[in-house]
């Protein structure tokens, strides 16, 4: 399908991109393009209007780096899933993100899709949301005046990923003494977008769960912490029955209707996630 015409802009710096973004009318950011260009085609197919301007961040090389300094991991917003999967820094300091990236879409999409595009594309089901919430990551934006604006990942998704600034990088502290488990439920058959994903973070000390964080994305809304599940887990003992006990008191009706297939699968996913975390800590 040929795309509807638009004006293509390729700024060479983030500051330039942010300024352009603020001044141009009817504009979309192209950060990888796997979501945006596909959306443009769908809009054209439905006879809907498509943007007049596209700002591509492709030529800003500085946005593609991944590095660790003084146990702070920095990931440029234009780092692709592939960059994340092959990153030596992340393999050492945060293999969780690699596990998440490996499940995203297909090989070609992983070669093209960026972490920045994934979380700022305003699609609720995108997969880097839950791990970034569980990592308490900070999102560094550049405003139209060139200033840096930092917002916590959890807060960003609470405001439905709305922003008029350009995402430059993501930072978080390299996790220590804590385990992560990430699980997702594909919509149909793999490879597929998830209908539900969970990132569980906790450490186990003296038979109890500590520093529990449960980031959930049920695909219909952006990722957020589920404090009810966190509190429930914090009360459990770390034995073989933990997963079953978790389900005893949980009310999952906010994620899926009672008796629905989705709720049954979410239940078993939660149970398996907790059991896997316990296994990791042994």
């Amino acid at each position: 399908m040929l795309l509807n015409p638009f004006t293509y802009h390729a700024p060479s710096s983030v500051k330039q991109a942010a300024k352009l973004y603020a001044t141009l009318a009817d504009v979309k950011i192209l950060a990888g393009g796997t979501i945006v260009l596909n959306t443009l085609k769908k809009l054209k197919q439905n006879g809907a209007k498509t943007p007049e301007n596209i700002i591509s961040l492709k030529k800003i090389k500085a946005l593609q780096t991944i590095c660790t300094q003084k146990s702070i991991i920095t990931i440029g917003s234009m780092a692709t899933c592939r960059d994340i999967i092959h990153s030596k820094e992340l393999k050492k300091d945060c293999p969780l993100l690699i596990a998440v990236a490996q499940n995203i879409a297909t090989t070609q999409i992983r070669n093209m899709a960026t972490i920045g595009g994934n979380i700022t594309g305003r699609f609720t089901w995108t997969e880097f949301q839950t791990p970034l919430v569980a990592l308490d990551a900070k999102l560094h934006f550049v405003t139209k005046t060139g200033k840096e604006k930092i917002i916590n990942a959890e807060s960003f998704f609470k405001q439905n990923a709305k922003t008029s600034d350009i995402l430059e990088k993501i930072t978080f502290k390299a996790p220590q003494d804590v385990c992560f488990v990430y699980k997702r439920i594909p919509k149909r058959a793999e490879p597929d977008i998830p209908i539900f994903s969970i990132c569980l973070r906790a450490s186990v000390k003296k038979g109890t769960f500590q520093n529990v964080c449960v980031a959930i994305n049920n695909a219909k809304s952006f990722a957020r912490k589920d404090t009810k599940i966190e509190k429930t887990i914090a009360k459990l003992k770390t034995n073989d029955k933990a997963g079953t006990n978790l389900l005893k008191t949980l009310d999952l009706s906010r994620y899926a209707k009672d008796g629905d297939y989705k709720q049954a699968v979410i239940s078993s996913t939660l149970k398996n996630t907790l059991n896997e975390l316990i296994a990791q800590t042994k």
């Binding site: 293509y8 390729a10 192209l30 093209m112």
Partner: peptide, 27 residues
Amino acid sequence: CDEAECGACTVLINGKAILSCITLAMD
């Protein structure tokens, strides 16, 4: 397809498989 699902448009960019149907030529 018109939705980046079929892979028939795959080409290599710097040796990596990418979908040419959702790649802007100027990029």
